[in-house]
Amino acid sequence: MNIRTASMQDIEEISAIENECFPPEQACTREQFKQRLTYYPEHFWLLEKDGEIISFVDGFCTDEETLTDEMYEKAELHNESGKIQMIFGVNTLPAYRKKGYASLLIRYIIEQSQKQGRKAIILTCKEEKIPFYEHLGFENQGLSSSVHGDVQWYQMIRRL
Rank of each mutant, 00 (worst) to 15 (best):
M1T: 11
M1E: 08
I3F: 09
I3S: 08
A6H: 04
M8A: 11
Q9V: 11
Q9C: 04
I11K: 09
I11S: 12
E13W: 00
A16N: 10
E18Y: 06
E18D: 08
N19Y: 06
N19G: 05
F22C: 01
F22M: 06
F22W: 14
Q26P: 00
A27P: 09
A27S: 15
E31T: 15
Q35C: 12
L37F: 08
T38V: 08
Y39D: 12
Y40H: 13
Y40L: 06
W45V: 04
L46M: 12
E48H: 08
K49P: 04
S55T: 15
S55Y: 05
D58M: 15
D58G: 10
C61P: 00
E64T: 10
E64A: 13
E65H: 13
E65M: 10
T66Y: 10
L67Y: 08
L67F: 09
E73I: 10
A75M: 08
G82N: 00
G82D: 00
K83R: 13
K83M: 01
M86F: 15
F88S: 11
V90P: 03
N91R: 08
T92G: 10
T92P: 02
T92N: 07
Y101E: 07
Y101H: 15
A102L: 01
L104D: 03
L105K: 04
L105H: 05
I110M: 07
S113W: 01
Q114F: 05
R118I: 01
I122C: 03
I122A: 10
I122L: 14
C125M: 03
E127I: 03
P131Y: 02
P131M: 03
F132V: 01
E134G: 08
H135Y: 04
H135M: 09
G137M: 02
F138M: 02
E139Y: 05
N140R: 11
L143C: 05
S144T: 08
S145T: 12
S146L: 14
S146F: 06
V147Q: 12
V147R: 11
D150H: 15
V151L: 10
W153H: 04
W153D: 02
Y154P: 06
Y154V: 02
M156S: 05
L160I: 14
